[in-house]
Computed example of a mutant assay.
Amino acid sequence: MRITATCLLAAMVALLLACVAWQPEFSWLAWPRAFSEAGAVGAIADWYAVVALFRHPLGLAIPHTAIIPRNQARIAESLGDFIEKHFLTPDLIVGRLSEHNAARALSAWLAHRENSAEIASGIVDSLPRLLERIDESDVASCFERFVLPQLARVDVSRMAGQAMQVMTEGGRHRPLLDRGLTVVERWLTANVDLIKAKFSEASRFTPAPLDAYIVNKFVEGIVALIREVAASPDHELRRQFDDAIATLSFKLQDDAGPRRFGRLLLRDCIRHFRDGAYYGVLLDRARARLVADAASETSVVHALIEDALVSLGKGVASEPSLQVKLNGWWLDIAEGLVLRYRHRLSGLIADVVKGWDAREVGAKIEAEIGRDLQFIRINGTFVGGIAGVLIHLCVLGVAR
């Protein structure tokens, strides 16, 4: 188009020269001469106007030319300010976003297992790279700032007492007690000879047969008592055991002594964890486990993430009230982000435009406008020619 417009200007000049040369012989050439003369002037004027926007005409530093490169900084500021005022407004953005049920669309998308699987694959694939960038100091900092301070405030004694209370409610501990009685019975039966040997060592002045008799009777009595307790749900020893557990649970929760001991024990455990350089061990084991799991075709982490995303999608998709809450939460976040960062975004746009090369800015804008710029030159040529003919007609009318 640029070549076309230039060739049209050359045609006007050629026509003008031809008319000047042959007009004395052919008087009617005054009309095409008027057309070509004014058309050439219009073409040159519009060429100058178009070129002056983007660069110096013919490389001459004529005042008020190369307007866009020379005013690059002002244009950049104006562009950023224009976008901030007319596009990055909370009312406009929130209004547009509120037209769409984003929560329903996202939940429906997540409900398809193929989509959730893609997200899970991306997360699992990124875990090894993420762990490679984490070193022992990062883990130590995380534990020192978030985990250990919270752990230090835990009341271990009270938690243990509450756990024991939960275990004993409704007789939940009785199967464990029965299992313990069975284990003790088996141990006594299997270690009778060891008990005899230890008893003989402690009783040096009694004959060995007497020692064996005493130990056998002792073991037989203990085993009989254990079987009696195991067979009787209402045995007195069971009630004593239950009372002892209840008392211990109460003391762990309310007695100052056990609670103080629990705090000291927890403090010693935290100090041992810090002094033992376990951060690196934890990191190495976590890294090895996750890398091995990520490389497995039946990745546990992948399955967990995938199932969680699918469940989340189905749950949100079936709850319109939850969608309303999530959309409201999302719109509040969007409004806050716009209010907080719109000035920074407009500043970023202005800085980017300022950072462009001045010639490159003009070339980019000229290329984006494209053909219309050359049509200005072409139209200017024909409009100028028509105006020249009309002026010539007016001059002839006045002369007559």
Rank of each mutant, 00 (worst) to 15 (best):
V389I: 15
H392G: 04
E132N: 14
G80W: 01
S318V: 11
H64P: 02
C269L: 15
I83K: 07
V20H: 09
V291L: 06
A190R: 02
T206K: 11
D91R: 11
Y341G: 13
G362N: 01
D193F: 08
A197L: 14
W330V: 14
E297P: 00
A38Y: 00
A43N: 05
G347C: 03
R371C: 01
S299D: 00
E306L: 03
L58S: 05
E132W: 03
V147D: 05
M12Q: 05
D125P: 00
A208G: 11
W109C: 13
N379R: 06
D81W: 08
G257M: 09
D125L: 14
V301E: 00
S27T: 10
N71T: 02
I270H: 03
V41M: 08
C19G: 15
L373E: 05
T298P: 00
L309N: 03
V383N: 02
A399G: 12
T65Y: 01
I68D: 10
R263L: 04
A212K: 11
R371M: 09
P32Q: 11
F54D: 12
P233A: 13
R113C: 01
A103S: 08
L127Y: 02
I222R: 01
A73C: 05
R113L: 02
A197V: 04
E306M: 08
A224S: 15
D125N: 13
K85L: 11
E319L: 08
R271C: 13
V183C: 06
I93E: 10
E25H: 11
A61W: 03
A334K: 05
T65W: 02
A363G: 09
I222F: 09
W187T: 12
D243H: 03
G161A: 10
V20D: 12
R285W: 10
A152K: 13
V389F: 07
I75Q: 03
S98P: 06
I134F: 02
F241I: 14
L225P: 02
V139R: 01
R186S: 15
E306T: 04
A103M: 02
I369E: 08
A73D: 14
A66R: 03
A230W: 00
H56R: 04
P258N: 06
P63V: 05
Q23R: 11
N101Q: 10
L237F: 10
G384M: 07
T89L: 12
S137E: 15
